Every structure is written in C-alpha cells, then in structure tokens.
Measured scan of single mutants.
Amino acid sequence: IINNLKLIREKKKISQSELAALLEVSRQTINGIEKNKYNPSLQLALKIAYYLNTPLEDIFQW
C-alpha cells in the first residue's frame, strides 16, 4: 500500500492529534498508519478521506 496520509495531512495543516480527534482514534493509530505499521479498515480509510476532503485513492493506493 502506498500511503500519502502524512503528506496530505501536513499540506492541510492538520496535526496527528487533530485528525485523531476527528476520527475518534488515538494519535498513535494515525502515527501507525503514516508509518505503514498499521493498515486502516475500509471504514477508517473512508473517514480519513472524508475529513481531509481528499479522494481515497489519492491517500491510499493499493
């Protein structure tokens, strides 16, 4: 999986903590996703895309 979450999140000036709060997950979860240590569920990936107002395929590429 190619993961552009960190790049997109930083472009939008959103911290890991802010995104985690919006998604109701821990900051460690966001960190793990960004470091490719954790693959989000489809539901979480869709929520990330929604809150970042970015197409899912721009954030994650399988």
Rank of each mutant, 00 (worst) to 15 (best):
I14N: 00
N36H: 10
L23F: 01
Q43K: 12
E18N: 09
S26K: 09
S41A: 05
Y50T: 07
L56I: 14
E57N: 12
T29C: 15
Y38D: 05
I1N: 10
N3M: 04
N36E: 08
S17Q: 14
N31Y: 08
I30D: 00
P55A: 07
I59A: 01
L19A: 02
L46T: 11
L23I: 12
S41W: 03
I1H: 12
S15D: 04
N53V: 08
E24R: 13
N3S: 07
N53M: 08
L22Y: 15
I59C: 03
A21T: 11
I33G: 00
K11I: 10
N3F: 03
T29Y: 15
R9T: 03
E18P: 03
S17E: 13
Q61T: 11
S26E: 08
E24W: 07
S15E: 06
P40G: 03
Q16K: 07
Y51R: 06
S17H: 10
N36Y: 09
R27C: 11
N53D: 15
E10M: 10
S17I: 13
E24T: 08
L46R: 11
K11P: 02
N53Q: 13
L44W: 03
I30T: 00
P55T: 07
L23M: 07
E10H: 09
E18K: 12
A49F: 03
K6G: 11
I1E: 07
N31K: 15
Y50E: 13
T29I: 14
V25K: 03
Y51D: 01
I1T: 12
N4Q: 07
A45C: 11
I48Y: 00
L5A: 02
D58Q: 11
T54A: 07
E18W: 05
E10A: 06
S15K: 10
L23T: 15
L46C: 14
L56R: 03
L44K: 01
S41Y: 04
L44T: 05
P40H: 03
I33F: 06
N39D: 08
Y51V: 15
N4D: 03
E34C: 04
R27W: 15
N3W: 04
S17F: 12
L56S: 03
F60K: 00
I59V: 06
Q16G: 05
Y38V: 14
Y50N: 08
L5S: 03
L22W: 13
I30H: 00
I33D: 01
G32N: 15
K12S: 08
I2Y: 11
L56A: 05
K12A: 13
Y51N: 06
K35M: 14
E18S: 09
K35L: 14
V25D: 01
K35P: 01
L19S: 00
L19Y: 01
Q61S: 14
S41F: 04
L22I: 09
S26D: 14
K37C: 14
R27D: 12
L52W: 00
S26T: 09
I14A: 01
E10V: 09
T54N: 03
W62P: 08
